[in-house]
Nucleic acid binder design. Structure first.
Length: 263
DNA sequence: CGATTTTGACCGGCGC
DNA sequence: GCGCCGGTCAAAATCG
């Protein structure tokens, strides 16, 4: 896996820098915007995009209790295997001067009953872990397209089981799978069917494409002033370069102004 | 039968 | 240094 290319494609790319230029790396900024799904008739509901840049918090709190199902955990002593182990993984030699890859991540809070959001891309699940402060597990997916290292994790909010938090990491550098063009991709405007040849990442678009509910939004009409309009300026604030803090926190940080739309 | 999911183990970072 | 924890691997199981 060459994450290096990803890093270049993202955090280091001039274009993306532009996109992220408004992201400060000191304090956490996060915004959230709701889409009136009601008018869309979408039962899936609304999509909320959240983002913050660099967070320093560590404890989640929220008064949640642990579930009791973390019985497994990884501390499991493997025991008797057949003899030939030790060859599993273990070689990850790759960091030269840099530390690990810190790609930008995009966290979205989506109201949906299904975890697997149809975003036009094909994903392969490569892991699942129990979340610390949530009874719901977090699933890890990777884009199945070769040479595409985009990953995403999906987890359900333990406070709102109807809410799914999806975090995308990286950006697709290939068009949507033709197999899905007929179905999911058909919902996109033609101009959006071609993400970006490469080197010209348009995050906002890409991100929008990831959200199934956005499709409707885009199909109908983008409310002026919203992040769906021509200018994605607000998007800058949805992007953060470092890491997503606790998701619970994310929701907590949402200014009430953005939430008042809730019934 | 190939592609994908499931699931336990392993790894590396971080806090204590 | 140890244990917790998030993330990933990979073999086995399952699906289409």
């Amino acid at each position: 896996m060459d994450y290096g290319s990803l890093e270049k494609a993202f955090g280091l790319s001039p274009t993306s820098s532009e996109v992220f230029s408004s992201v400060e790396g000191g304090n956490r900024t996060m915004m959230k915007q709701h889409v009136g799904a009601d008018e869309l008739g979408g039962n899936t509901g609304e999509v909320t995009a959240t983002l913050n840049s660099s967070v320093s918090s560590s404890s989640t709190e929220a008064g949640c209790e642990e579930d009791s199902d973390k019985s497994k955990k990884d501390g499991q002593p493997k025991g008797s295997d057949n003899g030939g182990e030790s060859s599993k993984k273990g070689n990850k030699a790759k960091m030269k001067g840099e530390k690990k890859q810190r790609e930008p991540r995009f966290a979205f809070v989506t109201k949906s009953e299904v975890d697997q959001l149809e975003d036009g891309y094909r994903w392969r699940k490569y892991g699942q872990k129990a979340v610390k402060n949530s009874p719901y597990p977090r699933s890890y997916y990777r884009c199945t397209t070769q040479k595409c290292t985009v990953k995403k994790r999906v987890e359900r909010s333990f406070q709102d089981p109807s809410t799914v938090i999806t975090t995308y990491e990286g950006q697709h550098n290939h068009p949507l799978p033709t197999t899905l063009r007929g179905s999911a991709a058909g919902l996109f405007p033609p101009s959006m069917l071609t993400p970006s040849p490469l080197g010209r990442p348009s995050f906002p678009h890409e991100l929008l494409m990831q959200m199934p509910n956005y499709h409707h939004q885009m199909n109908n009409q983008a409310p002026a002033g919203s992040m769906f309009a021509e200018n994605f300026s607000p998007f800058h604030q949805y992007v953060h370069q470092h890491q997503v803090p606790d998701y619970g926190l994310l929701q907590d940080m949402v200014p009430s102004t953005f939430l008042k739309h809730e019934p």
